[in-house]
């Protein structure tokens, strides 16, 4: 799955974005499939906005987001759903966990969304053990701490097949040790799928062997 940006400018941030130089906004960018991409972005530069544009849940921009050479807007809802089930996965900054489900059900929901699940339940439990969240799996989403939610969101994103993983500050609520464990798991899962990721964060970090760095 090819992701390209052409002169992408968020309408609410237009003035701000055009005043400063950016590697992404108002540029032509092509993300190479399978590559690990880091986008470093100070607060208020439209980091989350960019993630939402890439995942196509916000549309208030000028310019183009091209997926396999076609505008996001040209895909219909059913097709977008299929792509979100099979080709592109996401970890939101605000995590978006269903509070009426348990932690495990939150992951399961995404796993069984496709008729033939990509991961087995054992695989999920194994990954949960690696992220030290086995003990919260049966807990209701409501009672999870932010750190736990974040790891559940990561596991949820990894339970499906994808070619691109889009992450918005995925370790913001984790300590360094847990963040590194999560990063190692993510890197491993991307490699087995031959997939790439786009990660946005506030600061510089060396948790992954990034192929490309951008400044927003």
């Amino acid at each position: 799955m090819q992701i390209q940006l052409e002169n992408l400018v968020p309408i609410p941030l237009k003035d701000k974005v055009l005043q400063r130089s950016s590697d992404i906004w108002n540029k032509e960018v092509s993300f190479t499939p399978g590559s690990f991409v880091k986008i470093k972005a100070p607060s208020g530069t439209g980091k989350t906005t960019l993630i939402h544009y890439l995942y196509h849940i916000r549309y208030d921009y000028t310019g183009k987001v091209l997926i396999n050479g076609k505008l996001w807007q040209s895909y219909n809802k059913e097709l977008i759903a299929t792509m979100r089930q099979q080709q592109v996965s996401v970890i939101f900054q605000d995590l978006r966990i269903f509070e009426q489900l348990t932690a495990e059900e939150n992951i399961e929901l995404k796993r069984v969304m496709i008729p033939q699940p990509y991961c087995t339940t054992e695989k999920i439990r194994e990954m949960a053990a690696r992220l030290n969240v086995t003990h919260v799996l049966a807990q209701s989403g409501k009672t999870l701490s932010y750190g736990e939610r974040q790891r559940i969101a990561i596991l949820r994103a990894l339970s499906q097949p994808f070619q691109w993983l889009i992450m918005d500050e995925p370790f913001s609520h984790l300590d360094d040790e847990n963040a590194q464990r999560a990063a190692d798991l993510i890197a491993e899962e991307c490699r087995t799928r031959g997939a790439g990721f786009i990660l946005t964060d506030l600061d510089h970090d060396s948790r992954f062997a990034y192929d490309t760095h951008y400044n927003l």
Binding site: T82, Q85, R156
Partner: peptide, 15 residues
């Protein structure tokens, strides 16, 4: 809200 999140996560309207 729940339906919107389901769709965001990739649930097809058909489903």
């Amino acid at each position: 809200r729940e339906i919107q999140l389901l769709v965001t996560l990739g649930t097809a309207p058909r489903q």
